[in-house]
């Protein structure tokens, strides 16, 4: 699969909760294509459908109607376990709250997805060390999350996403819990991963200056995709 090929495609995706009178529509017939190698920022107020889109892209949720194609595969028809395999082999997650396992070293946290990939222990350790080095945490392999700063914890989370060698990293407000300085460090790291390693990144954020790191901006309002535009090229500040 080459850079520029469609990777994520929404075709008339609708997601609603409840039924009848109580039906709440989170996404309403959204069409969207994200290509291999893009860095996309998704913005929008609470309840606009941006988190729902992320959950669908991340194969954690399924559309009520319409089609979601990942690398041409129709995800909406896949069962729970097939979607788990898709997450395992193609997706990496970075969350606002880091979501590291407590009382578990950075190294072990990063190895977690590799365990499910069924890699032997030596290979897991090697890859986890490489991923931690990549995010600038060489020498902190044996630290617990509690011994690391917020920025460092998020780096561990990025290393965990990276270790599985994903096609896409899905970042849900990755800087939401960090101060401005750390936020920019994390964004630069994601930018490097996108530019140098060709990893597609889809990121939800509230902040304009964080979204500015992306190459393309999507804005959701009331379940509709209301803006889709390129972001002016921005270097490191």
């Amino acid at each position: 699969m080459a850079k520029g090929d469609p990777l994520i495609e929404f075709r008339g995706v609708r997601r609603s909760y409840g039924s009848g009178e109580a039906e709440v529509v989170a996404l309403d017939h959204v069409d969207l294509t994200i290509r291999e190698g893009e860095f996309v920022a998704i913005m929008g107020p609470s309840g606009s459908g941006k988190s729902t889109s992320m959950n669908i892209i991340g194969c954690l949720d399924r559309p009520t109607e319409g089609k979601y194609l990942f690398k041409g595969v129709e995800v909406q028809d896949l069962d729970r376990d097939s979607r788990a395999l898709l997450r395992r082999h193609a997706l990496g997650f970075v969350f606002q709250g880091f979501n590291l396992l407590a009382r578990t070293t950075a190294q072990e946290n990063v190895e977690l997805p590799l365990i499910y990939k069924g890699l032997p222990a030596a290979e897991r350790a090697r890859r986890a060390r490489a991923a931690l080095e990549k995010v600038g945490l060489k020498g902190r392999e044996d630290h617990d999350p509690a011994q690391l700063s917020g920025g460092q914890q998020q780096r561990v989370a990025i290393a965990r996403a990276l270790a599985g060698e994903p096609t896409v990293i899905l970042a849900d407000e990755p800087t939401g819990n960090l101060d401005s300085h750390r936020s920019h460090e994390i964004m630069q790291l994601l930018q490097v991963l996108n530019r140098e390693d060709g990893i597609t990144i889809v990121m939800v954020t509230h902040e304009e200056d964080i979204a500015a790191y992306a190459g393309r901006l999507l804005v959701f309002t009331d379940g509709h995709l209301t803006r889709d535009e390129p972001v002016a090229e921005r270097g490191a500040p």
């Binding site: 376990d81 979501n99 997805p113 965990r160």
Partner: peptide, 16 residues
């Protein structure tokens, strides 16, 4: 619960 969520997110199947 959160640990289970993390495991599911990184690709653990229900059986695992």
């Amino acid at each position: 619960t959160r640990e289970i969520g993390i495991r599911l997110a990184v690709g653990a199947t229900s059986a695992q």
